[in-house]
Amino acid sequence: MDGVTHRFGDVTALDRLSFVVPSDAVTVLLGPNGAGKTTAIRAITGALSPAEGSILTLGVDPRTDGDAVRPRCGVVSAKPALYDRLSGWDNLLYAARLYGVAGRGVPRHEVDQRIRSSAARFGIDAALEHQVAGYSTGMKTRLALARAVLHEPDLVLFDEPTSGLDPESAHAVLELITDMAAAGRTVVMCTHLLAEAEGIADHVVVLEAGSALVTGTPEEVTRRYWPGDLVLIEAEAPDQLDRIANWRGVVGYDRDPGQAARVHVDGPGRVPDLVAGLVADGVRVTRVEPHQPTLEDLYFAVRRAARGDGLAPVRGVVPAAPERIRSVR
């Protein structure tokens, strides 16, 4: 997507959105509700046709060649979008017919086999004869997953795939998504739940108000925001840690009330100086350890930077007196 803008009346859902989805990898679109994640997925398949910007999906523009794009895509939307009055089997058969898996020239037993194996892959084969209205949320999601990959799409798009699932089912779904990428599929997943993106994202796009704030692999983006080292420091009285926010070598500082401080320093050699300074100030430091930034850290850092709050700004800091800082330095 390059410079894509889409408006719903007066509301701008996508605002010059640009990002690239690498093939054979999991790309996670991160963003709060209303950031434009769902609209982006709809634009990728050509379900929506933004008027501005350029889109290439699997090498073609979905707005002009949607008929070529959509058969190669599988979509799992936030709601499972299943026909409740039909059985699981009939839901899959409907998709098979629309996507050309079933039809003239395809033997019935091959279609049956395809449906069964797709359902078995997601552990829903035993319930196929039952009406979908009686399925649990987890079963519906599994059926929607089976339907999305029934036609062996090149690109699979997930819109909040764990929405409404219990933790166990959500974990299972995320494992299935990881397996799909491992099997050579290109996956795009959008979520506002950072924990579920952690570990499966090969590529992240952080969205806000329809724009991409940052894109890249988690490692690349992390290095961009934390070129130095991140250290987690705990103290018996955590608020006493806030004084180091303005100390030399501290690039960024962040601490939630009552929690440990995440301190971004310009190099690992700075850590002993910080600890010595804190101890000299009478702060009882209880733990110091290197901290690997999580996707959550990244997400909030990116959003704060976009708001102009600066990179990893200090929250709830009580600046130390200037003379005291000087003496420590």
Partner: peptide
């Protein structure tokens, strides 16, 4: 409708 909109 979401399913149909994304379908061929």
């Amino acid at each position: 409708g979401e399913f149909l909109a994304h379908s061929p």
